[in-house]
């Protein structure tokens, strides 16, 4: 029970109540995140409606191999995260830390692949501005949104990785009580980042390829 006491914070009197509140709080934050990405998705919808041809032409230029491998990577990382979260609740320390470390590694793989893809995009002149590769009206809008949406997503992923890295570190040093709601809350956040990607993947990679 000493572990439970370590996880308890002001102003709570019981750990279960605290965990409930942490999960509830993060759900509220995720709702807010959905609207954040929702703004960009709305821009995508409006611009695609105005320029269907330009959007399909542009979507054909994204790198589907990198995109698909990254989708698989991220889904697997979410699986690791779910293992970490559930084993944390059941008190399985090694498995929990292993799951977190796996998530962290796959997150890193995702960012590396994303970096390679960005390099590829830049060499193919897919950055809007002077010298942009595609002439169609709307193609630049597509790539503006491509860079913004994947960039903001990668930023969210990086924030998640920093949080997970900290959890792994304090977990190894046995300073993290497994009962702490931090693992579950981080897991919820990580899954959101994953879900956002599942929406971005078809919008950015599958258009114009049917």
């Amino acid at each position: 029970m000493s572990e439970a006491a370590g996880a308890l914070r002001e102003p709570w009197h019981s750990l279960s109540r605290q965990r409930e509140a942490a999960a509830f709080g993060i759900w509220l934050f995720l709702a807010s995140e959905l609207l954040f990405f929702g703004g960009m998705l709305l821009c995508y919808a409006v611009c695609r409606y105005s320029h269907p041809q330009g959007f399909l032409e542009a979507a054909r230029q994204t790198n589907i191999v990198f995109g698909t491998v990254n989708t698989l990577t991220l889904l697997t990382s979410s699986f690791c995260m779910a293992i970490a979260s559930e084993s944390g609740k059941s008190g399985l320390r090694r498995l929990a830390i292993g799951g977190l470390a796996g998530t962290l590694m796959l997150g890193f793989v995702f960012l590396v692949i994303k970096g390679l893809e960005y390099r590829d995009d830049i060499s193919q002149h897919l950055v809007p501005g002077a010298g942009f590769a595609l002439p169609q009206l709307g193609a630049q809008l597509f790539f503006s949104l491509y860079w913004m949406m994947t960039g903001v997503h990668a930023l969210h992923l990086t924030v998640g990785m920093i949080i997970i890295a900290r959890l792994v570190l304090v977990g190894i040093r046995r300073e993290l009580p497994l009962t702490s709601p931090e693992i579950q809350v981080t897991a919820l956040y990580w899954h959101l980042v994953d879900i956002i990607w599942i929406i971005l993947y078809p919008l950015l990679y599958l258009g114009g390829r049917a």
Binding site: S32, L35, F36, F37, G38, C43, L141, S144, V152
Partner: peptide, 29 residues
């Protein structure tokens, strides 16, 4: 609030990074 945040982010992207999103010259609205 998050919708304002993302809107301002897009403004920064268009002004600073030159990514057209609302620019009518590139078909934006």
């Amino acid at each position: 609030t998050p919708v304002l945040a993302v809107t301002l982010l897009l403004i920064v992207a268009e002004r600073w990074l030159g990514l057209p999103i609302f620019d009518p010259a590139h078909g934006g609205d």
